[in-house]
Design a protein around this nucleic acid. Structure first.
Length: 713
DNA sequence: AGAGTGGGCCTTTTT
DNA sequence: GGCCCACTCT
């Protein structure tokens, strides 16, 4: 790198063009510059945390377009759709160009776009529905009934277990038998039944014209492999392919990229093996490692200068990751110089942890740090409940980026099911969901109706149903309304295909479902009717961005964090400011001035469930690495000394091995100075001199032991 | 056949 | 402590 420093970098420009001049060398460091300016052929960029990876991709995109590559000839695969949008926006502002025709987004999004054009070639219709996990589980439940010899068998795994097996098998392309032998040995005798269920499940999805998340990938791969003409269309089109977060791609995603970039081989992949945290979803870390072998002539670049974090934070991160044996040695160098030592806050219990975080947030705010520059990260959603209560109590506004997604909540799925079956009348799941909402109709009647619907030529004009079966008396009224509503929605949906005004738009359809049917249902069913109605109105407003029902449904299904709940509190802070509560997984790629990591105890983080294997532990450590490298200036690690297990038993916690294994000099220990003082000031004290005794024996070979704990002691 | 009630069961992370 | 399932009542 040092020899490169002496080079002068000049942006090559066509003097005859009026295009914007970008002074690349002044905004990029030499390594970044190399990546941005690198020519054709395969490139592998190993980009450490905070090394300006996004910045580099943004400039590379801008340079390509600036030099005449048509945006539509570029494919950009990112980890979230939001990331793709942001990158394209930033790039286009650099060159005053329009990058909207770049083919970009998550792999699922890209697969969806391709399949909407060619699904008929692999036995689906273009208007296929996309189902989430819950839908999959429901469908699998049916398949189990279909396949199982004895439906009363208590020992047979539950539908959600089967769902996990099938989806993991799909994401990793691992044979069911191998997967079960490795991870579910107690199910070995069920292998053949489960394989049978897998077949039934595949068949049902095709019949119903529905794909699950994995299908969006594997069907895309299948389509491209089996249809040379289609493959050529895309291969010719994509002269440049960029993939971000390559360490978290799975085998199918890598294959899709191999196929799409196969003609020009101008493939740039960017990633960091130290931040691979999605193996549970099939991410295949070896993709990045073996890339140079698969692409002979690959130029490898490393971005190792960290612009984000202070030196002490980076030292802690570096020290942690060296405990992984399967890690490529790399050393992030800090550009920012000094800073405070990271803090380990030893809290008595979860309530004190919440108090500590809340109070420290207020102190940071006083120091001039905006609430939006503060994040609280944790391993699992439920780790943040007490903190949410504390923040609410203190009127500190926060935004939660974890937990149930908006599009997974029951009322949203209910309303959406109407649009789904109108758009795709073979969508059994949507029909049954909607039918079950009608009063007087349960599973049995719904199934009868569905049997008629599936065989009808015009299933949305439901008059034929009454001619072929008797609707139970108690359901007469609700059925009549449903028939009318369905006909109305169908006419709207048809209108929307030709027009661009609001009538018949997905937004309008949602409003119709709400006003003509669902509002009444909500009011009779839920105690928090108002907030659910608000959600539906919000959904309708969001749908204004779409003209076609099909596009809307697909985007909604693939949506990440839409509908983030903002706590509506008397806001004594600046407008719009709120701290972020997020799982570590969802914090990937983001940064904040101050970061709190909750629950650093062995069993919560690392999660007890992941500690069975060395690979599991190493992935947890990478997760820890991701969490600490989100912080720019302030890092607080929190350990409540008491922990409650799921049976409400309290016990002493053990400090997370990820902290314990670090040299003491890399962080400060803080404890509460004086419990009785009202201002609860935390300070840097000597751990040994505080008034708690270390409760659990740290060398206890049995690990964490829960004990009953008497409050009075 | 639907709707309402009590007993067992996990709780990691997500497109 | 919350969700799902099976069972019972209308």
């Amino acid at each position: 790198m040092s020899e490169k420093k002496n080079k002068t970098y000049v942006v090559k420009r066509d003097v005859t063009s009026k295009k914007s001049s970008l002074d690349y060398s002044s905004v990029l460091n030499p390594q970044q510059y190399e990546v941005v300016m690198a020519g054709e052929g395969p490139l592998l960029v190993i980009a450490g945390a905070g090394s300006g990876k996004t910045h580099t991709i943004v400039y590379r995109l801008a340079r390509l377009v600036d030099e005449g590559v048509p945006p539509s000839a570029i494919l950009l695969a990112t980890f979230t759709n939001k990331a793709a949008k942001e990158m394209l926006l930033r790039s286009s502002s650099l060159i005053k160009g329009d990058l909207r025709s770049v083919f970009g987004g998550t792999f699922h999004h890209i697969g969806n776009l391709i399949l909407r054009q060619y699904a008929h070639l692999i036995g689906f219709d273009r208007n296929f529905s996309i189902m989430d996990r819950e839908d999959s589980t429901d469908l699998i439940k049916d398949c189990i009934v279909q396949a199982k010899v004895n439906p009363k068998d208590k020992n047979f795994p539950k539908p959600n277990v089967i769902e996990s097996i099938l989806s993991f098998s799909a994401d990793t392309e691992m044979e069911i038998a191998n997967l079960i032998c490795r991870d579910y040995p107690y199910l070995i005798e069920n292998i053949s039944v489960i394989k049978n269920i897998q077949e039934l499940f595949k068949r049902r999805k095709k019949e119903l014209n529905i794909m699950d998340f994995s299908d969006l990938l594997s069907n895309t791969s299948l389509l491209l492999e089996e249809n040379e003409e289609v493959l050529e269309v895309f291969q010719n089109r994509f002269k440049y392919v960029l993939v971000d977060e390559y360490q978290d791609t799975n085998k199918i995603q890598a294959r899709i990229i191999d196929l799409l970039s196969g003609k020009w081989k101008n493939l740039t992949v960017v990633g960091d093996d130290a931040q691979s945290i999605y193996s549970f979803r099939g991410a295949y870390f070896e993709n990045i490692v073996t890339f140079p072998e698969r692409y002979p002539g690959t130029k490898v670049f490393k971005l190792e200068e960290n612009y984000r974090s202070t030196n002490p934070i980076l030292e802690l991160a570096n020290a942690s990751i060296t405990n992984n044996t399967k890690q490529y040695p790399k050393e992030l160098r800090s550009i920012k110089k000094e800073g405070e030592l990271p803090v380990l806050a030893l809290c008595q219990d979860v309530l004190q942890q919440s108090e500590f975080v809340a109070q420290k947030i207020l102190e940071l705010k006083d120091e001039g740090i905006s609430l939006s520059d503060i994040a609280i990260l944790y391993r699992a959603h439920y780790h943040s409940i007490e903190l949410q209560m504390e923040l609410t109590r203190r009127s500190i506004p926060f935004e939660i980026r974890s937990g149930l997604r908006f599009n997974e909540s029951r009322h949203v799925k209910d309303v959406i099911s109407f649009l789904r079956f109108v758009n795709c009348p073979t969508d059994e799941l949507a029909w049954k969901r909607a039918l079950n909402l009608l009063s007087g109709i349960g599973n049995t009647t719904a199934t009868k109706i569905w049997d008629l619907v599936r065989n009808s030529d015009n299933p949305l004009q439901l008059d034929f149903v009454q001619e072929n079966m008797t609707i139970p008396k108690r359901a007469k009224d609700s059925w009549k309304h449903f028939v009318e509503l369905t006909a109305l929605l169908q006419s709207q949906c048809n209108v929307s295909k030709g027009k661009s005004d609001n009538v018949g738009s997905p937004s309008e359809m949602i409003s119709v479902v709400l006003s003509k049917f669902y509002r009444n249902y909500i009011e009779l069913t839920f105690d928090n009717a108002d907030s659910r109605i608000d959600d539906i109105n919000q959904l309708s407003e969001f749908a204004l961005n779409y003209n076609s029902v099909e596009d809307f449904l697909a985007e909604l299904a693939l949506m990440g964090t839409f509908g983030i709940e903002n706590t509506e509190q008397e806001n004594k802070f600046d407008e719009g400011e709120s701290v972020i509560l997020s799982t570590i997984h969802q914090s990937k790629g983001l940064e904040w001035k101050a970061v709190f990591v909750l629950w650093l105890t062995d069993s919560r983080f690392p999660s007890a469930r992941s500690l069975g294997t060395e690979a599991g532990e190493e992935e947890e450590r990478r997760l820890f690495y991701v969490s600490v490298t989100r912080a720019k200036d302030h890092l607080f690690l929190c350990q409540p000394m008491l922990e409650t297990n799921m049976y409400k038993q309290s016990g002493f916690s053990r400090l997370s091995r990820f902290v314990k294994e670090l040299p003491d000099s890399l962080y400060e220990r803080w404890t509460l100075l004086d419990e009785s003082s009202s201002d609860n000031s935390f300070a840097n004290t000597n751990y040994e001199s505080d008034n708690w005794t270390r409760p659990a024996d740290p060398d206890d070979p049995d690990g964490f032991v829960y004990e009953f704990f008497d409050d009075k002691n």
